[in-house]
């Protein structure tokens, strides 16, 4: 039982951070029909900015740093949208992939200049860095923080999309951007906002996970692949599908580690293949027209 609990909490925490990154990517794809390979770079920038802001201290400053890092990443996203991404709307997949891969390269090298080659760590404030015991299982408190933030992000997104007029507009853009635009909505401004929100989510995720990972170049490259897997099996453009898929990937990873450690990371690819054999357009996606 204790063992089971440990695995469940660990899986939920992994799935939670994955969900935050992937939700941003899928939101952007849904509204703009643009795939962004540099989304993982935004996540990495969130993490690096966090290391800069937190510095050696912990405590209240930790929480402010998360917010600040996320906001700066959102601003960076806005700049990316204005400079490059808006010209990719309506373009072929290859154009989008190559252009955003180019952004990925540029951001990776720039990060190297700014933060160097070494790995950095962030220490969480003592209030959340310990462990707690429940039903005989000893669990890291910080796992609960990540789960909490992910749930908050999920609820926030749900509320935004279901209960605000901006959210309705975003969903309308997912359904039919042309009708929305010819109906009087400044689509470019809406896209800018969506992209910034997507970047914000990546920034939050990158900043929040810092106490549990070593922050180093290459974070962008590894997270984007997993994120793409989540987004693809969730169904591009579906936030709910993304949440579901993040769980699937998290569970596959955990099960893999338990069953066959040397094949652990293969399991999540098998999950992806399995889903796509049954539903080539993802769990909650719609077939491409």
């Amino acid at each position: 039982m204790a063992r089971f609990l440990i695995e469940v909490i660990g899986t939920l925490s992994d799935a939670g951070s994955l969900f935050m990154v992937a939700a941003g990517l899928t939101l952007i794809f849904g509204a703009m029909r643009v795939i962004n390979l540099a989304h993982g770079s935004l996540y990495m920038y969130g993490a690096f900015l966090m290391t800069t802001f937190v510095g050696a201290s912990s405590g209240l400053r930790f929480w402010w740093s998360i917010a600040l890092a996320a906001v700066i990443v959102a601003a960076l996203g806005a700049v990316m949208e204005l400079g490059i991404v808006r010209f990719l709307v309506g373009k072929e997949p290859l154009t989008q992939l190559v252009a955003t891969f180019a952004l990925f390269l540029i951001l990776a090298d720039t990060a190297l200049h700014l933060w160097g080659n070494g790995a950095r760590t962030v220490v969480a404030p003592s209030s959340v860095s310990g462990r707690f015991t429940i039903a005989g299982a000893v669990l890291p408190v910080y796992d609960l923080v990540i789960i909490g933030v992910a749930v908050a992000v999920g609820i926030g997104l749900w509320a935004l999309l279901r209960h605000t007029s901006v959210g309705w507009r975003i969903r309308a853009a997912v359904d039919d951007p042309e009708v929305l635009e010819s109906g009087g909505v400044n689509l470019r401004r809406l896209n800018l906002g969506v992209f910034a929100v997507g970047a914000l989510l990546a920034g939050i995720a990158g900043a929040v996970v810092t106490p549990q990972v070593s922050v180093a170049p290459g974070m962008d490259e590894s997270i984007i692949v997993t994120t793409l897997l989540v987004v693809v099996i969730g169904g591009l453009g579906s936030v709910t599908g993304t949440a579901l898929a993040a769980l699937v990937i998290g569970i596959a990873d955990t099960v893999g580690t338990l069953v066959a450690p040397t094949w652990a990371s293969t399991f999540m690819y098998l999950a992806v293949i399995l889903v796509l054999v049954v539903r080539p357009w993802g769990l909650l996606g719609t077939p491409e027209r």
């Binding site: 007029s165 309705w168 969903r171 359904d175 039919d176 929305l180 009087g184």
Partner: peptide
């Protein structure tokens, strides 16, 4: 060409606020 995942009321509301 309607916003198919939005309700009728949401469709009209989006249009009005546009």
């Amino acid at each position: 060409r309607v916003f198919s995942s939005l309700s009728v009321a949401e469709n009209l509301e989006v249009a009005r606020r546009s």
